[in-house]
Amino acid sequence: MPELYNPKLAVWKFASCDGCQLSLLDCEDELLAVAGEIEIAHFPEATRKVVEGPYDLSLVEGSITTPVDAKRIQEIRRVSKTLITIGACATAGGIQALRNFRDVKDFVSIVYANPAYIDTLNQSTPIADHVTVDFELRGCPINKMQLLEVISAFLADRKPNTPAHSTCIECKRRGTVCVMVAGGTPCLGPVTHAGCGAICPSYQRGCYGCFGPMETPNTASMSKEWKKLGASSGEIERVFRTFNAWAEPFRNESEIHGEEKK
């Protein structure tokens, strides 16, 4: 019998906190089993071994923020059969996209004494702005069970089951009492993409949007409800402007309230 071919997996990092790729190492019960089904061909955080491409599956973490990285993602796309982005940085630009609302030169000089040593782009942009992406997995951080689902779906050549409905549905499923309706706590759940399992409301706090916008979110109506609960324009601007600030529906909503604030 011929030896079974294990698909080659590569993990790539751009501007990010490392948390999403750590999710793979956090699959303590499944890691050795996954490693039996795929060949870990490039994953610097976990191994010094490097197997040459092309790769069957590339997982990309992080956003594009430097001229060098803008070139590197093109090379990675060329050697990847399937390219999947993992996390808010790779799919929406991440929290470092807060620079996109300002002049990056001001930012450089706040942090570094010799700004001339720093080579950075004006904007932090998602991977899909640069190359074709086959699938985007949401979250800041991603949910590790969803990551396993995406890898399993890839191995079985099927579409991953990661619903695009709101976090509200997840609260209903786990039987969490609505913190907004019953508790008067402002919550982004109604406009936020599902995936985390609605953790915050089960810890008595409102959702703060780690998974970014759901499919067709009604952000205007959301803001109206927040105002009824006493939120200021500044607060609404800030809550839409965190880890998924550059995702279009959140960006537009934050800009409306940023204008109002003035």
């Binding site: 501007a15 470092q96 930012f107 450089v108 706040i110 942090v111």
Partner: peptide, 11 residues
């Protein structure tokens, strides 16, 4: 270290 800067202290 060529990890790109992310400017937390600024934003």
């Amino acid at each position: 270290i060529f990890e790109p800067p992310r400017f937390f202290e600024a934003f």
